[in-house]
Design a protein around this nucleic acid. Structure first.
Length: 289
DNA sequence: CTTACGGCCTGGGTGC
DNA sequence: TGCACCCAGGCCGTAA
């Protein structure tokens, strides 16, 4: 499941091949995950790709303008859980769940496959950029510690929910949230506002370290994630808690626990990451005395 | 406004 | 062999 490090890895791969290429043709399969399929087919053919960048978990393919040279529109791609971008010859066999084909002027085809179709594709024209991407929060690798502490420490929601909230920080998903909280020794059910200055500092550092290390290892391939070159990542071998329920904590040997927090499976060490004092009243009372 | 939660989308994996 | 069920990430509606 592509989160910031995986998307960053894919984008770096795309940056090596896409800038300067012209899109000759677009063919569509299933389009229920595309905002306006007709707009893609109508506007993309003939356009040249200026550059590729990442915005949170979005891949932004910026297209050259109609002639003025200014970037006027962008193709936004979100990989969801199972989205993949692959390059191949136009006559190469079509992998199952391939839904978009971009014919390029280097005699290759860029294809988008997505088993679950939880991904998203959208063409942003002119000023639309800001409204669509502007609502997202800070990039965890660009934010300062002060900004981060204000965003997370000033909220009363669970820290797990805050880190997953793309309007707070853009790019974190379940894996890197859990890995960061373990590194910082913070329980996922802790509330943002109860975190001490030191804890916020540790969490900020932990997030940066986890993401940076994961990018260096080209992301985590937990299911079928591969980058734009078809390579698997290697950060899954460095996971300390994610999907390690019942296995020993790398720090203290305590068994890793799994609990649903903020609607997501959350993995943590019950000893390194002590639970907050007063758990939710509801659950307290629900427990038979 | 903020937060919590359930439901929805889809299909591969699991377990009976 | 089949099949019900769970789960994943993001988003949206609803309720407190």
């Amino acid at each position: 499941m592509p989160e910031l490090p995986e998307v960053e890895t894919v984008v770096r791969g795309l940056q090596r091949v896409l800038p300067g290429r012209r899109i000759l043709d677009v063919r569509l399969g299933k389009t229920d995950f595309i905002d306006d399929p007709a707009a893609l087919a109508k506007n993309l053919p003939g356009r040249r790709i200026a550059r590729v960048r990442r915005h949170g978990k979005f891949i932004v393919v910026e297209l050259e303008g109609g002639g003025a040279g200014a970037v006027s529109s962008s193709l936004l791609i979100h990989l969801g859980m199972t989205g993949q971008i692959i390059f191949c010859a136009p006559d190469a066999p079509i992998a199952p769940h391939t839904h978009v084909f971009f014919a390029l002027d280097d005699a290759r085809e860029m294809r988008y496959t997505d088993i679950r179709r939880f991904g998203q594709m959208r063409l942003l024209v002119n000023g639309a950029q800001d409204s669509a991407l502007g609502a997202l929060g800070l990039d965890p690798l660009e934010a300062t510690e002060t900004e981060f502490s204000a965003r997370v420490g000033g909220r009363s929601a669970r820290v797990k929910a805050l880190l997953l909230d793309q309007h707070v920080l853009r790019g974190m998903g379940n894996i890197y949230t859990d890995e960061s909280l373990w590194r910082a020794r913070i329980h996922p059910r802790r509330l943002g506002a109860t975190l001490s200055r030191v804890e916020l500092h540790e969490l900020f550092r932990a997030i940066r370290q986890a993401l940076t290390e994961a990018i260096r290892l080209r992301g985590s391939s937990v299911s079928d994630y591969v980058d734009a070159e078809g390579m698997r990542g290697e950060y899954q071998f460095r996971h300390r808690v994610y999907q390690r329920e019942g296995q020993k904590c790398f720090r203290c040997k305590t068994r890793i626990c799994r609990e649903v927090v903020a609607g997501r499976s959350s993995y943590f060490c019950p000893r390194c990451q002590p639970a907050p004092r007063a758990p939710r009243k509801k659950f307290r009372q629900a427990k038979r005395s």
